[in-house]
């Protein structure tokens, strides 16, 4: 079956892969372009703006530590692939969640697929990802998206399902159409739930970093994997610390208080 897919769908698959490659490349380029120190300051200002001064100090110190550990470059690659994965997962996942909430057929079809995606060990679909997209970051992102897309779909669905029917009724009573109900009532009401989905999506993407390194994705996963192969505790610890720091920063910045 995999062969059949490769033979018949290589065209669209390749264009999809090149889009992802393009996005990663650009994000990576953007992050790698300024001096690390400038980036650290920018991130810490962003943390200040999103949350508070405490977090911004933590971000600055954490990133400085990563820089000091010589893990800056893999950190950038990791960040770029996480951002790409999250963007793809949200762009695909949130609309599916919306459709799922409105359409029973979509709901019934997606339910087993989501269960399947959430329970199957990620290692299993590293192989088809590898076959379709070859070794490298793109396969890593695809595998990450498959792993991380379920929460945004499920929590968008849940958020919209839980919108007070009286609010929707009010919308209808004032003559709102489908789009107006969605944009002015359902999505804003579901926002807390959707935000939780986004946070979950980011965290799951991060947890795929090391696994994705097995199919050639770069970033912080690579040194972890290498240190495992050569039993280099120091290197493994440094890279692992980098993953922990970036995880904490992303969680605190995009999580709910």
């Amino acid at each position: 079956m995999v062969n059949f897919l490769i033979n018949n769908f290589s065209g669209p698959l390749n264009s999809f892969a090149s889009i992802i490659e393009y996005v990663i490349g650009h994000i990576e380029g953007m992050l790698a372009f300024p001096h690390p120190l400038i980036l650290i300051i920018l991130f810490s200002l962003l943390a200040w703006k999103l949350k508070n001064i405490k977090l911004s100090v933590f971000v600055a110190l954490g990133l400085a530590l990563v820089l000091n550990l010589n893990m800056w470059e893999p950190l950038i690659i990791t960040l770029a692939s996480i951002m790409t994965s999250v963007i793809v997962a949200l762009v695909v996942g949130i609309p599916i969640g919306i459709l799922k909430a409105h359409n029973r057929a979509v709901d019934l079809i997606t339910r087993p697929i989501l269960d399947f995606m959430q329970t199957i060990p990620p290692f299993v679909y590293l192989i088809p990802a590898l076959m379709f997209f070859g070794l490298g970051n793109v396969s890593g992102v695809i595998a990450t998206v498959v792993f991380a897309i379920a929460p945004p779909i499920r929590l968008t669905y849940l958020g919209i399902k839980q919108v007070d029917t009286e609010l929707k009724e009010a919308g209808h009573a004032f003559g709102a159409d489908w789009w107006q109900i969605l944009l002015k009532i359902e999505l804003p009401s579901a926002m807390p739930s959707i935000m939780m989905g986004i946070n979950q999506c980011i965290m799951l993407s991060l947890s795929m970093v090391v696994i994705a390194a097995m199919i050639g994705a770069g970033g912080l996963g690579k040194p972890v994997l290498r240190s495992l192969n050569v039993v280099d505790i120091g290197l493994g610890f440094e890279a692992g610390l980098g993953v922990v720091i970036i995880a904490m920063i992303l969680d605190r910045m995009f999580g709910r208080d």
């Binding site: 609010l167 009010a170 004032f174 003559g175 159409d177 009532i185 009401s189």
Partner: peptide
């Protein structure tokens, strides 16, 4: 929908305000 916009407004028991 047009008719509702032009002719009829409604007030609800539990207010149905957008929080």
């Amino acid at each position: 929908r047009e008719f509702r916009k032009e002719k009829i407004a409604m007030v609800f028991q539990n207010f149905a305000l957008f929080p």
